[in-house]
Design a protein around this nucleic acid. Structure first.
Lengths: 156, 156
DNA sequence: AGTGAAACGACCGTAGA
DNA sequence: TCTACGGTCGTTTCACT
C-alpha cells in the first residue's frame, strides 16, 4: 500500500488566505486579516509569526529600480570552468547584482544586474564579472521592458 | 553653462534611511523608524505613504516557492517573430510564470517559470509557451540553486 | 513639510478551553 | 491551536508652526 500523495502541507487553506492578504498589503492589521479569514487577531498573528520563523514568508519593502535612477538592467548568462558555487559566491558580492542562480543548460549561471547607465554596465561586466578567474564567457541580455514581476507563486 | 548632474532626486537621505528600515522589516512601526532616522512618527508615515502612492515603494509579503512545494524553477529564453509585446502579454497570463522581460540580445524574451515537477515544466513549456503562434524557438535553463535574490537595489 | 497632543485602534502577553 | 481579555504602544486626526 502506497501512502496518498501529499501536496505541500506547509500551508492549509486558512494560512493561504492570510498570505494572500499580506501579498496585497504587507501592513494590513492582524485584526482585519483575521476578520477576512475567520480567525481571531491572536491566532492570525501567531500563524504569521510561525511562517516567518520557518522562512516561508517574509514581509519586506520592494522598490522600483527605474524610479530610483537605475535605468539599466540586464541578465548575464555566464559559462564557468571549475566550481560554479565559488563563482556564484563572488558574483553575489558585486554591487548592483540582484540575482544569481546556478542553472543546467548552455549557461552555468544567470546573473541579473541593476545599474545607472550603459557605462556602469560595461564597467561591471568587464571589471567585475569577466575578470573573474573561472569565467569562460558571458552573454548579455539588456532589459528593454519588464512586463511582469511576481514575488510569489503558489498561494492561490 | 550646463546644469550640474542631478542624481536621482527621488529619495533624499532621510527617505533612503526609511526605506532601508522597511527593507529589513516591512512591519516595523513608524514610531521606531522615525526614532532611527530622526523624524516624528507622523512625518515618517507621511513620507512612506507618498512613496507608496508614487509607486517607488511597496510593502508586500514574499514567499519561498520551494517551501510551498514548487520544487522546479526555470528561466526560458524565447525567440519571437513579430510583436514581442503581444507574446510577452500572452506569457504573463500563463499560470506559474513569475517573470517576463523583453531583452536585446540573442533572446527576445526571458520568462521565469515556477512549477511543482519536471512533468509540469514540460507541460507548460510545450502546451503554453512553444505552442504560441510567434514563438520561434526556446532555450531552457533549469534552476539548480538560487544563490542570491535581492528585491531592491539603490538605497544603500 | 514639519511637530505635538488626544482619541482611537492595534499589538502582545497571559490565561484558559 | 484556538479564543478571550487587559495593559501597552502605535496609529490617526487635527490644530498649529
Amino acid at each position: 500500500m502506497t501512502p496518498p500523495i501529499e501536496r505541500s502541507a506547509v500551508l492549509d487553506d486558512v494560512s493561504k488566505a492570510i498570505v494572500e492578504q499580506l501579498q496585497e498589503d504587507g501592513r494590513r492589521s492582524y485584526a482585519e486579516i483575521g476578520k477576512a479569514v475567520g480567525l481571531s487577531e491572536t491566532a492570525t498573528r501567531q500563524r504569521v509569526q510561525k511562517l516567518q520563523e520557518a522562512g516561508v514568508l517574509q514581509i519586506v519593502a520592494v522598490t522600483d529600480p527605474l524610479q530610483l535612477g537605475f535605468a539599466r538592467q540586464a541578465m548575464i548568462g555566464v559559462r564557468v570552468s571549475g566550481d560554479t558555487r565559488v563563482v556564484a559566491g563572488a558574483m553575489s558580492e558585486i554591487p548592483g547584482v540582484t540575482y544569481v542562480v546556478s542553472t543546467a543548460g548552455s549557461f552555468d549561471l544567470l546573473v541579473e544586474i541593476v545599474c545607472e547607465s550603459d557605462d556602469d554596465l560595461i564597467d561591471v561586466l568587464n571589471d567585475r564579472i569577466r575578470s573573474l578567474p573561472d569565467v569562460v564567457s558571458t552573454e548579455t541580455f539588456v532589459y528593454l521592458k519588464l512586463h511582469r514581476q511576481l514575488y510569489n507563486w503558489g498561494t492561490r
